[in-house]
Design a binder for these strands. Structure first.
Length: 211
DNA sequence: TGCCAGGCCCTCTTTAGGGCCTT
């Protein structure tokens, strides 16, 4: 996506989101079972979105154990189509952030395709940004980074809203540290998106252009 | 009980392989 396109959306407003799913691949038939998201405006969390959903297929036992989301819970929930239609409204006109965004983006586009909707904003990845900014992190798993940077957390992982909240705090910390490391005064979503697409060995050049 | 996928990224690379991340 061109940088100019990203600038159509407000730079000071974005949605950090996270899916829980039945597996790793929508192309293999896996479906979303929970969506969690937080709205960040001017560096603060100002709204939240969390919905379980009923994908109409069985949730594997491994996923029930991993997430605590059971088949009974999904069965009592609204359909993926209903929930995703609401989520489409929640993110309208905003750019998105997710941890390992390529994963969540695949499910986002697959679930939207089923209800004949498309998302045209930008999606940035906190994992790729972390690899470029937190050089000394033990690894770049969400839980590790939360511990490494003492991010606010309730100790809950593999639930959509909890993971989205931690990712939101991580994203804000990444912005803070990049400002501190490089002396930047402003960091747009477009720049952060470009950062995650830039090979590490070309970062110095990108930073020079930003100054 | 995750073995499934896919993109990133490093290196013993580019005519490739494998670890890291996400559920």
């Amino acid at each position: 996506m061109m940088l100019l396109e990203l600038h159509r959306y407000p730079a000071d407003s974005l949605v950090v989101f996270d899916f829980e799913t039945t597996g790793l691949s929508p192309d293999m038939g896996d479906r979303a079972i929970e969506i969690g998201a937080v709205l960040i405006e001017n560096g603060r969390i100002t709204d939240r979105f969390q919905q379980l959903m009923n994908p109409g297929i069985r949730i594997p036992l491994f996923i029930e154990n991993l997430t605590g989301i059971t088949n009974a819970m999904a069965k009592e929930s609204r359909s993926n189509a209903q929930v995703m239609a609401d989520f489409y409204e929640f993110i309208a006109g905003r750019n998105l952030v997710a941890h390992n965004a390529s994963f969540d983006e695949r499910f986002l586009r697959a679930e939207f395709k089923r209800i004949k909707k498309t998302f045209s904003g930008g999606i940035a990845c906190s994992l790729l940004a972390s690899r470029r900014i937190f050089h000394d992190a033990p690894n770049h798993q969400l839980a590790t980074l939360a511990s490494y940077k003492n991010l606010p957390t309730e100790g809950i992982y593999h639930r959509a809203l909890a993971d989205a909240e931690v990712t939101a705090h991580l994203w804000l910390r990444l912005l803070d540290e990049l400002r501190a490391q490089q002396g930047f005064t402003q960091l747009s979503f477009g720049f952060m998106h470009q950062l995650t697409k830039t090979p590490k060995h070309q970062l110095r050049k990108l930073y020079a252009q930003q100054r």
